[in-house]
Write a protein that binds this DNA or RNA. Structure first.
Lengths: 114, 114
DNA sequence: CTAAAACCTCACGTAGACGTGAGGTGCAAG
DNA sequence: CTTGCACCTCACGTCTACGTGAGGTTTTAG
């Protein structure tokens, strides 16, 4: 598939896909004419990338983590990083939960006032 | 208190505090000589600002939400926004929870392999 | 009164994930 | 063979929450 269709299917922009290649996150093949050729699973990979971005990871981390999802082998470094990022996300969830509680209080207080 | 002490107590930089003033999030008084004079509760307010920033809200939203935490009155607009941001944060927590599960799987798989 | 902190106001620099043309090429249709 | 859309490669622009001097003033310690 070409870049336009992947963009439509995955919901990201063409520019974003080129950026992912530049960052080494999703490197497609090339047609004889030089156009990018993506395989089917590229869409899944894009979703994974977006999910990790949404968790606050920078491209470098995503580039280091994606191989762990592809292959079934992990180096010590990768395992340490997996744990670190997992812990970071846990802390992030805890903080968001606290913020949510705070906003809930405000909403409830407003509702009680009419 | 002056800006340096607030910075130390709240853990943010002096520059950040000036920025908060510029954004209308935390506007201190001024000494006769023109220096910023903060009250005690400024530290709490800084923490609230940081918490909202951490939840992904931009300055504009924070500026709109902070009054809800100060006064006990809310406009319709404020209440709608409170709900909207609350829902956004809920969704964010859900997505992070999914990401966490995914990373947990990877960590567990790596652990099982030795 | 003086020196040194600590503060002040511009105002440009930064990082990250793209947006947005500019100018040129590949490819399927007619 | 030519239109025309989708694609290509630079390469500068954008937005946010500050970082980082430059150059000058206020406050405090001695």
């Amino acid at each position: 598939m070409r870049i336009g269709e992947i963009a439509r299917r995955s919901g990201v922009s063409v520019r974003a896909l080129r950026y992912y290649e530049e960052q080494g996150l999703l490197v497609p093949g090339r047609s004889p004419g030089g156009q990018r050729e993506y395989t089917e699973d590229a869409v899944q990979r894009v979703r994974a990338i977006q999910q990790l971005y949404a968790a606050g990871l920078p491209s470098r981390r995503v580039a280091e983590l994606l191989p762990c999802m592809d292959t079934d082998t992990t180096t010590d470094h990768q395992r340490a990083m997996l744990r670190a990022e997992r812990d970071r996300i846990r802390a992030q969830i805890d903080e968001l939960t606290a913020t949510l509680a705070r906003l809930d209080e405000l909403v409830d207080a407003a509702d009680r006032r009419g």
